[in-house]
Amino acid sequence: MKIAVCAKQIPDPANPIEYSNGNVVRPDEQVLDDTDRYGIEVALQLKEKYDAEVTVISMTKVGTEKGVQQALQMGPDKALILEDESLVGSNSLMTSNVLSELAKKVDADIIIFGTESTDGYSGVVPQQVSRILNVPCISYVKNIEIDESVTLTRQTIEGSEKINLPEKCVISVTASGVEPRYPNFKDIMAAKNKPVEIITKNDIEFDTEQNMNFVEIKDISTSKQGEKITDEGEAHQIIIDKLKEIKAI
């Protein structure tokens, strides 16, 4: 079995996101999106079960590839990265086309995603890739049970449902249910020697275009000049009075 697992590199979330001309400003050093750690964990559990080969796939700009290293440290075997400055600011469909091509290149049976990225959160890339590759899409997976077979639990609007892992599919994993593993010192050193192949847009077939024109970004962050009171044993009464005043009770 071959598994491709996505690792999106994002600007360090500790800093505020900056935009230029509608695109996220990406420093040379980007880190692994935490939401992808959950997908990587699922990939590694499947690796242990089926002795599968796990390849990290990523689309990114030219840079230090710190985020991909962080992904490899968790335990995947290798990485295939498409680095291309011209794809900065890609819309979801462009990203999906690239990731589909990368999955094809590594001959993946199973392709694993986060449900939505921390910086972009368009939340449609996994489903788009499944449609492009014409395989079943198991979205919003929140749990995996592995015994003789592999059972996935997915979140639905009304609750949840279970599915047996098919031979070929796309899976998107929500940030809960599995506990991503932490690499130890040995894992961190070992990751440095793992094969990382870097290709560019010219190495794949690509004909998707931008279908949106950026108009503007407006800051709408609000802050209220509300009252702030330190509780000295009477705060409950202040809340009750307020609720009465605004006729909530």
Binding site: S92, L93, Y121, V124, Q127, S130, R131, C137, Q210
Partner: peptide, 24 residues
């Protein structure tokens, strides 16, 4: 709606019509 079903369906259609959806 950007719910579970809505996101899956719109994403599938976006591939068919070669157009990125706007999310959120």
């Amino acid at each position: 709606n950007s719910s579970y079903i809505g996101r899956d369906l719109i994403a599938f259609l976006s591939v068919d019509f070669k157009t990125s959806p706007v999310s959120n």
